[in-house]
Design a protein around this nucleic acid. Structure first.
Lengths: 296, 296
DNA sequence: TTGTAGGCGTTATCAA
DNA sequence: TTGATAACGCCTACAA
């Protein structure tokens, strides 16, 4: 041990990994590094990983199919002990095939698919959106409610749309043509959607955006067009990110406990890695609450 | 090759690395994952890395000494072919010692130290701040100018402060007591600093924040206190991040080309890794320009 | 308790 | 050109 000290010896993790078949590394793919939703999540994942003496390989999918596919390739080639990912463009077959070929635990964030062998956190989208829309109707008295979803069928678009549709139907309200817009998951996407609303002769009185970045974009565009928010048009978002408190008026939104989601997925992964958990895939639904501020 | 195809053979990168002493992986430590400054930068780094068939191990320092130190430890143990980092809390000795022990190329972002063996991009802080302050004086006619810097001597605090001080001195303006505040590098830090200004009997007419997150916090606090920005108090930031366009009024700021910085550091690193460049440490200064919007 | 040999999956070297 | 072999640095199993 003296020698270790004086020579500053550091074991070579590569060689150790080759021998032990353990890499002390997990890989994480997030949906979009610009989306503040992921910041507390990866922070929490890193905390848990460090506690377990693991390193974290982070990739940024950016909602681009090639990037996501590439991540799978990388992880297949470069052995890691576990994977956490938030796939958006990957098909169910892509993921299924990956799981069959790599024999390591996988945890999905915002998982659309329920796979018997892998854990996931998610499933909040539909009930939370349902509750939010119902709240807009019952507590705030809105009846003409628009919805900004995401292009194609990318998660979590369909689930949040379903929550919206069900809530409207259950309240006996009709979804008029033009109420539903599809846009990119970004500020610019929300701005684009709001522009579509503003061209309508009788636009909705309030708009629910499937993500808070879009909600912020919608607010900015409405204000730029001379409308007052929420008096002329209300806007509500999904996820409580820092931008919600920067935009004026502050954003009313559905808030999930983001660090908790990160801790949750990381814990599930390490339970698999350490062998503490060997049962079938678990699926946990994160909690949420409505945070009322000024945009509705 | 048929067998490769049918069996789906993937070479084990670990074993290859052990043999070749090359890991096909670089490590990146950013200052704070919540700071949008780093998002385009890491995105660009990843792009360059993927082009070179390299993976990227990302760490988040979060401006915490232990995290940064841990990153150094990790990289010492887990061989990577190169390192890009934005150290904030590490001492010069820490970095120096690391470079001596690890024999891989290192590139520094926002480097405060000029090391003969390592490349860096930075050095913008002082001249850009100087120009910004001078612009506030000459083009905008301000004379009572405050400065929100960062606590302790964390980079890039001192350099930006120096730019401020020099510009004030060169213009023959005095820096009154209370003009200079120190705060955390966050929205909340800027809010805190603005609260200090608002307690003063004769606060500055405009405030330059060493980072745009702080500038946003300053604006929010000023507005919350009933002041109009920029009529009652102007605010200017450093770095053009998305929040600059979300806050109302939109932020006037110093803009650097963020993706270019990422491409720059990654290119310098790969020139070292591939052996194309073997000379002494290079230091490149990124360009900047003043983007005038509404907050000043 | 201490020491030694074998093998993890590659690649590079050297011989055939 | 092809094929066998050693070595990268570590850990584990087994022998002394």
């Amino acid at each position: 041990m003296d020698a270790v000290e004086t020579l500053g010896y550091q074991p070579n993790i590569l060689a150790r990994s080759l021998r032990t078949q353990q890499t002390q590394m997990i890989a994480v793919m997030i949906g979009d590094i610009s989306n503040a939703f992921y910041h507390p999540v990866v922070r929490a994942i890193q905390d848990v990983a460090y506690l377990n003496d693991y390193d974290v390989l982070i990739s940024n999918g950016d909602h681009i199919y090639e990037n996501e596919k590439r991540f799978l390739q990388t992880v297949l080639r470069r052995p890691v002990d576990g994977v956490i990912m938030a796939p958006h463009r990957l098909s169910v077959e892509d993921i299924d095939q990956f799981i069959r070929r790599s024999h390591i635990p996988v945890v999905l964030i915002g998982a659309q698919l329920q796979h018997p062998q892998i854990d996931g956190v998610g499933g909040t989208s539909q009930p939370a959106t349902y509750e939010a829309i119902t709240w807009l109707i019952q507590a705030k008295g809105y009846r003409r409610i628009g919805f900004i979803g995401v292009e194609s069928d990318m998660v979590p678009g369909p689930a949040r749309y379903l929550g919206y549709e069900r809530a409207m139907t259950d309240a006996g309200l009709s979804i008029e043509p033009g109420f539903v817009q599809k846009a990119k998951f970004t500020v610019e996407g929300g701005a684009e959607a709001m522009r579509m609303y503003l061209q309508q002769s009788n636009p909705p009185a309030v708009v629910f955006a499937a993500n808070s970045l879009m909600a912020v974009g919608a607010i900015l565009t409405a204000k730029a067009a001379g409308l007052r928010v929420p008096e002329d048009i209300g806007v509500m978002g999904f996820d409580d990110i820092p931008e919600a408190l920067i935009v004026d008026p502050n954003l009313t939104t559905v808030a999930r406990d983001l660090p908790a989601i990160g801790t949750q997925v990381a814990s599930m992964l390490f339970e698999r890695i350490t062998g503490k958990e060997t049962g079938p895939g678990r699926f946990v639904q994160s909690g949420w609450r409505i945070v009322e501020r000024q945009s509705v």
